[in-house]
């Protein structure tokens, strides 16, 4: 069967994820560090549930109660200008 993209932001293929698992990655965090899956602009909003399912399937373990992938701020893409304006009245300057 054809390969497929799992993380569309970073264009990580299923075969790359399975390969990373064969060479030792066992958690979402390890997969992310190894393949960049979940590190793109959507910050894993699309592929995170897939990664959880894939790991659970291949390691034969339940999906953990608390994800070992942390969510960090900013939780949405933020432009540098917005960041620089934090705390000021941005609207009035436009």
């Amino acid at each position: 069967m054809s390969d497929k993209i799992i993380c569309r932001c970073e264009e990580v293929l299923l075969s790359e994820i399975v390969e990373a698992m064969k060479t030792g990655a066992q958690t979402e965090k390890e997969l992310k560090l190894k393949t960049r899956a979940g590190m793109g602009i959507c910050q894993g909003r699309t592929c995170r549930p897939l990664l959880e399912q894939i790991i659970s399937f291949y390691t034969n373990k339940k999906i953990p109660q608390a994800s070992n992938l942390t969510f960090s701020i900013p939780v949405r893409p933020l432009s540098l200008s917005a960041l620089a304006h934090t705390g000021k009245d941005y609207k009035n300057e436009n």
Partner: peptide
């Protein structure tokens, strides 16, 4: 993200849901 800072004692997160993908070639 437009710069406002809202201070409050109580927050309600009503952020809803996102769609699950089905990866297909």
């Amino acid at each position: 993200n437009h710069g406002e800072e809202l201070h409050t004692d109580y927050i309600l997160l009503a952020t809803g849901a996102a769609e699950k993908a089905i990866p297909v070639p």
